[in-house]
Write a protein that binds this DNA or RNA. Sequence first.
DNA 1: GTAGGGTTAG
Length: 757
Amino acid sequence: MQSSAMLMPISRTHFVRTLKIFCKYYSSILNKNAISTMASSTSLSYTSRDLDPPFFIGETCKSMDQLKQIHCRTIKIGLTKQPIFLNKIISFCCINESGDMDHALKLFNQIPEPKSVFHWNTMIKGYSRIDRPKHGISMYLDMLKRNVKPDNFTFPFLLKGFNRNVGFSCGKELHGHVVKFGFASNAFVQNALIHMYSLCGQMEIARAVFDISCKMDVITWNVILTGYNRVKQYDETSKLFREMEKNGLIPTSVTLVSLLSACSKLRDLEIGKRVHKHIKKCEIEPNLILENALMDLYAACGEMDVAVGIFDGMKTRDVISWTTIVSGFVNKGEIELARNYFDQMPERDNVSWTAMIDGYIRVNCFKEALVLFRQMQASNIRPDEFTVVSILTACAHLGALQIGEWIKAYIDRNKVKNDVFVGNALIDMYFKCGSVAKAQRVFSEMPRRDKFTWTAMIVGLAINGHGEEALGMFSEMLRASIKPDEITYIGVLCACTHAGMVDEGRKCFASMTTEHGVEPNVAHYGCIVDLLGRAGHLQEACDVIKNMPMKPNSIVWGALLGGCRVHKDVEIAEMAAKQILELDPENGAVYVLLCNIYASCKRWDSLHELRESMMDRGIKKTPGCSLIEMNGVVHEFVAGDRSHPQSKEIYLKLDNMTSDLKLAGYSPDTSEVFLDIAEEDKESTLYWHSEKLALAFGMISSGPGVTIRIVKNLRMCVDCHRVAKLVSTLYDREVIVRDRTRFHHFRLGLCSCKDYW
DNA sequence: GTAGGGTTAG
């Protein structure tokens, strides 16, 4: 035991009162002299503050330090010989929040055999408290070995510490012991069993235990309701609640919280409002958790006025109350209001930070999301699996591979729960940063895969130019008995499109209904029109549109227009553009595409007319914009941009590069420039394209041989594509450009898209 | 002498 001088002081009153309690209960074993000796022999410093009326060590002691001081004194006067005193100390170590289980075990081992089941139970409870279920189990086995029989307390203590890792097999075996020792009809034990099974995700077995229980206990119902909430079967929660009412049980506030939580997830405002009325009518004391749950219901259903009303009326608020309001506004896309509340929060935890980061992602403000993430780290709040999924999503959109890699390392280093969501987000991030091999590696290491995992692989491989492998993945997915859904088929059709596999695409489109019962929706028709159009089967694409069972939307017509651009078909293009503008008159991209087509077909009159009508209507081209990440910072360029601090060097580099390329035989491709200007000016327009600026910046900011990765918001133009190919061979640099629809991996003068995009 | 089961936010 440490010397008392090293320990935190306890008050004299505190110490004496603790001893007096013992005196009161065990006066026969203590003499008054011993007490006064103990009291006066203490050399500790005292404080004069009042303490709560103490009853036992467990309630008077505030910490292990205080406990050790008392223990130290009692050793001096020989009190520890009394088993009752030892029990108290062990109980404290096991039950108290600051209790020390190593210390408890040392004292436990000092108790002479045979130890009572009470002692064993206390130790088991302690191990559950500190989340060491395995220690609890070995305690229990040890107890059986010494022929001590468990009682009705043993199993609830033991089971409480169980989690998914200790597993379901162990829980099932223990269930056998429960039956064998005759506690199967004990309500406490039943509740603990239901809880354990639902923690392991075994709701069917949990339900079986529930069904044979006497169902007289509200808590049994509460356990099963939370179980269904945990596995996200919210409709079952709602159903069981109605059954509970039928059985005449009075819900507690815990029941109502569970029900409200389910209503919130189901967006069931009607039942939710009934609960709210019930709370008011029955004058149920609105505790903090219940108010938070009510607020969440209204926030989830978009009724922010009501949610804020509850928030304003709350006597006390915790971090959850604030976060609920923040995420309520996030859900409505009201990012500024969300941020306003976020900034006012008295404290923020990882959930609040993640909610706000997620808010920026939902409104496509990915850079803002990363900025907030840096602030979160600066505040020493640890990211968890939700946070990393959000940040990886932002990285995927921005093509920020370095930050993404950093997150991957963080996950491995800090043992962030690497669940299927995290795996899927990593796969998506790697693919959208053009890192095919790394995405495949994450996939191969995933212990569990869901249909999102497979879909991410199919789409990822497809956009990176590995169409055949993408279809291979699809077959593998079917072999693994994962049922494809409509999203999977979008991926499959997209794979066929990028690889130009027209026959495969037609077959897949036909088999989705016949073999997997997935009815094609308008998006699938968009894919098949894209597939046919790009491959030059424009008439067939038109026929598909004519015969589709629903009204084609602007995306379907847009796909046809895209095909017309590749194959320079002015007639069909004009028809498609007309259809789009009827559906979506403000669609600037359509004008631009049609301009491109007129320019490349040299239809100058039509081009001129279209340009005029664009100006009249005030329609502007979406400015091209390229992102490049350098040392964890994302740089953004728009065409003709001179705002970058290294702008001078960038343009100088671009000059040099262009000279080099011209020597190597490059001539600018101005065919798609539709501005009514002189030929030299067309060249300089091309020359300012944002991806060229980003490319030049990449060249001057990274060492030789380093891969340059660029993300572009629009489709790459023919000229930039040509330049990137030449750069990749002339300077021996791999260049990866992600455009609006796919990747271009430039290596040794060739592109992975095989010039098909 | 003594210890047991349930709840909210991303």
